[in-house]
Simulated scan of single mutants.
Amino acid sequence: MKKNLAVVFDSAGTLLRMYRVAKETATGNFLEDIESTMLVAEKAGRALVVMHAEPHMLKNADPGTEIGKFIADNDLKIDISCSSGPVSPLEAMKIINKEKVAVKDVTDVLSVAYQHCPERYYMAAALIVDKETQLIPYVLSTAGKLYSNTSKTFELLQCRGIDTYIASGDTMRSLKGIAEKLRIPIKNVFDIATTEDKAKIVLDLKRKYNRVLMVGDGMNDIRALQVADIGIVTVQQGDKRPQKLLETADLVINDIIEVIDIVDSLNTADHMKEHGTAFYC
């Protein structure tokens, strides 16, 4: 027998208010409050490469070390978080090894992110590779902290017996602490989830639940929003969201706590239909 309802959340921008900064490697210019997925989408053959490295590892490394050597010396794993076309980790690594981007380029963006988000919940570094030009056009850093109503939202969902999940392009290193804080079972957390991965996660859950809601804020959530029973876009981050994303959503919310009203309206209708009454804590 299927369970009644599950809610799947993206992480960055959905559960967390994000600060993102990129450094343009060709000019050294910094771009603040950027959308990393939009930088990827600018050109075909670009990919966002996440490094499974703690920020302190980068800060303690020789700043002149080329990033490819740093990855090799520390036996680090890389993953493709999103791409505008097929790019494998092996292809990305070949570009990284060829390029002269140094550890200092990455620590530069980490430092800017730290300054702008001192109360961060997590911090991460990434690269954008371009398969066509065989270059690394940008290095990036993101820092995020939970929205003020994120914890309350999850407390209320759990009080109602609603199963919650995270499907995010972030690494498990970043997501584990968030899951623990929000009391989400680690088996319900899906890391390094691409656009298609998120859609598949939602479709798989629809086999277990009568309804699956997807809550996201970016273009990499769009397929999951489409296949969910109800697709919810949050604009709490405050920056302008692409019109295509807003048009895909069934509902647009300004604060994550509004998910509770949506869930209650669904459950009230279901309970009234079955029992003639409904009760929530």
Results as ranks from 00 to 15, higher is better:
Val215Glu: 02
Ser148Pro: 04
Arg183His: 15
Asp73Met: 04
Val101Met: 04
Ile232Asn: 01
Ser151Met: 13
Lys176Glu: 13
Glu180Lys: 08
Asp255Ile: 05
Val103His: 02
Asp79Ser: 13
Leu157Cys: 08
Val8Asp: 03
Glu119Trp: 08
Val7Tyr: 04
Ser111Trp: 05
Val112Trp: 01
Phe9Glu: 03
Val21Cys: 14
Leu15Gln: 03
Ile162Thr: 06
Asp79Asn: 08
Phe279Asn: 14
Met172Leu: 15
Glu132Ala: 11
Asn210Phe: 00
Asn149Ser: 08
Glu66Gly: 05
Ile201Pro: 03
Thr277His: 14
Thr142Cys: 14
Thr107Gln: 03
Leu157Met: 07
Leu31Ile: 14
His56Ser: 14
Met219Pro: 00
Ala92Gly: 09
Gly45Phe: 07
Ile34Pro: 07
Leu266Thr: 06
Ile96Arg: 08
Cys159Pro: 06
Val112Asp: 05
Lys176Asp: 10
Val40Pro: 01
Asp250Asn: 14
Tyr19Val: 12
Thr234Trp: 10
Cys281Gln: 11
Ala102Cys: 10
Pro89Ile: 08
Tyr138Glu: 01
Thr248Gly: 02
Leu31Lys: 14
Asp204Leu: 13
Pro55Gly: 04
Lys240Trp: 06
Lys181Ser: 11
Thr268Val: 13
Asp191Glu: 04
Pro242Trp: 11
Ala53Val: 14
Met1Ser: 15
Gly216Phe: 00
Val103Ser: 09
Ile34Met: 12
Thr27Arg: 01
Ser81Tyr: 01
Ala102Met: 07
Thr277Ile: 13
Val101Thr: 14
Thr107Leu: 08
Lys198Gly: 03
Asp197Lys: 10
Thr171His: 11
Ala126His: 07
Met57Lys: 08
Arg183Ser: 12
Tyr121Trp: 07
Arg46Phe: 04
Ala22Lys: 00
Leu266Asp: 05
Lys104Phe: 03
Thr194Glu: 09
Phe70Ser: 02
Ala269Pro: 00
Leu76Ile: 15
Leu182Val: 10
Ala249Tyr: 06
Leu76Pro: 05
Thr153Val: 10
Lys98Trp: 03
His116Pro: 05
Ala72Tyr: 12
Lys206Asp: 03
Ala22His: 03
Thr234Leu: 10
Thr142Lys: 01
Ile96Asn: 07
Leu205Thr: 06
Leu58Ala: 08
Leu48Asn: 00
Ser141Phe: 05
Lys77Pro: 05
Ala249Trp: 09
Val259Asn: 03
Asp270Met: 04
Glu32Cys: 06
Val101Asp: 04
Gln134Asn: 14
Asp217Gln: 03
Thr150His: 06
Gly64Arg: 02
Asp229Val: 03
Ser36Pro: 09
Val233Thr: 01
Ser88Gln: 10
Ala53Ser: 15
Leu76Val: 10
Ser265Met: 08
Val139Ser: 06
Ile136Lys: 05
Ala249Asn: 05
Lys59Asp: 01
Ile136Asn: 07
Asp191Cys: 07
Pro55Tyr: 01
Val109Trp: 00
Val106Thr: 02
Tyr121Gly: 15
Leu39Asn: 09
Leu31His: 14
Glu54Gln: 06
Leu90Ser: 10
Asn29Thr: 15
Ile162Arg: 02
Ala92Asn: 10
Ala102Gln: 11
Asp204Gln: 14
Lys200Gln: 09
Arg160His: 12
Thr234Asn: 10
Asp170Asn: 12
Thr65Glu: 13
Ile136Cys: 09
Asn74Gly: 06
Met38Ser: 15
Thr234Pro: 03
Asn29Asp: 15
Asn267Gly: 08
Cys82Thr: 15
Asp197Met: 12
Tyr114Phe: 09
Gly45Ser: 09
Val252Ile: 15
Ala228Trp: 05
Thr27Phe: 06
Asp221Thr: 00
